[in-house]
């Protein structure tokens, strides 16, 4: 009966879409650059989830390989992004995303 229902790939994709939308809303509403960065991680994870669901649904390992590369790029992106955020926040500890316009020379 209810345990016989197995989640189809569409469920996973809808969940990934929901996660992506939440991350997008977070980037739009939050003003702390660190939290905006975390929301970008949420969106990356949503994409990873849909890649893995596609790999399972299509029977193709290529989706999982892509997720591997996304993980590497995400790690590099976090390292560089946090470096930039550290160098901004070191000057002004309470800087928000609104203040970043002052970066222009």
């Amino acid at each position: 009966m209810i345990s016989a229902i197995t989640p189809t790939p569409v469920w996973y994709l809808i969940l990934a879409a929901l996660l992506f939308s939440i991350g997008a809303v977070g980037v739009l509403v939050r003003r702390n650059p660190l939290v905006m960065f975390m929301c970008i991680e949420l969106m990356l994870n949503a994409v990873n989830l849909s890649f893995v669901a596609m790999a399972k649904a299509l029977g193709d390992i290529g989706g999982q390989t892509t997720v591997f590369f996304v993980l590497v790029v995400a790690a590099a992106e976090v390292v560089v992004g946090l470096g930039i955020i550290v160098s901004i926040l070191r000057k002004r500890p309470d800087a928000t995303a609104d203040d970043l316009a002052e970066l222009k020379g």
Partner: peptide
């Protein structure tokens, strides 16, 4: 995104060698 997924769910057919 949800509309696109529901619209394209017919194309989710196994075509690779399988996991």
């Amino acid at each position: 995104i949800g509309g696109a997924i529901l619209e394209g769910r017919k194309t989710l057919i196994r075509r690779g060698t399988g996991l």
